[in-house]
Design a binder for these strands. Structure first.
Length: 152
DNA sequence: TCCCCCCGATTAT
DNA sequence: ATAATCGGGGGGA
């Protein structure tokens, strides 16, 4: 069981265990261990964060509802360095009026950067909000070469 | 620009 | 079963 562990969640600085339980819908009787993560996984994640090396599919698992999976799949189709609006994503999953629900699904993405939720921006301009802070979202976008994002 | 109301999925009560 | 929430959007004042 130790040789095939998968990443299920990537948090942001300052996040609390409560947040993790909510986002993953974990039963309260499930314990979270902060140790014992295989070094190979740590290395793979580090490579992704620092060098934009994609995390191998076998190294992570997305947990969520059908709707969330559809939204997240649409996010993963966004090429590095590009952005889409929440409306774009809604259209992509063929539920053009579910913009608000899309935003909610994007907001609950358990694997930021693996699933590039930072590439979804408001149609009105700006970077929009981000679990890790708008500032971080702006940084991630600029790191990908996305042009000077306006206000926010 | 600001305000207000709508939107759909999910969670809370 | 109903209310509240949420990383948005569009129209009107």
């Amino acid at each position: 069981m130790a040789d095939n562990q998968q990443v299920v969640y990537l948090g942001f600085p300052g996040e609390r265990p409560d947040d993790v339980y909510k986002l993953l819908r974990l039963p309260k009787d499930v314990a979270i261990a902060d140790h014992g993560v295989p070094p190979t996984l740590v290395r793979a994640v580090t490579l992704m964060l620092n060098k934009a090396v994609p995390l191998p599919a076998r190294d992570y698992q997305l947990r969520g509802t059908d709707f969330q999976h559809r939204v997240w799949a649409a996010l993963r189709a966004i090429p590095r360095g590009q952005t889409r609006t929440y409306t774009d994503i809604a259209r992509a999953i063929e539920q053009p009026t579910a913009v608000r629900a899309v935003a909610h699904a994007v907001a609950t993405n358990p694997l930021p950067l693996v699933v590039p939720c930072h590439r979804v921006v408001p149609a009105a301009g700006g970077v929009g909000q981000y679990r890790g802070g708008s500032k971080l979202k702006a940084f991630l976008l600029s790191r990908e070469g996305v042009n000077p994002v306006k206000y926010n």
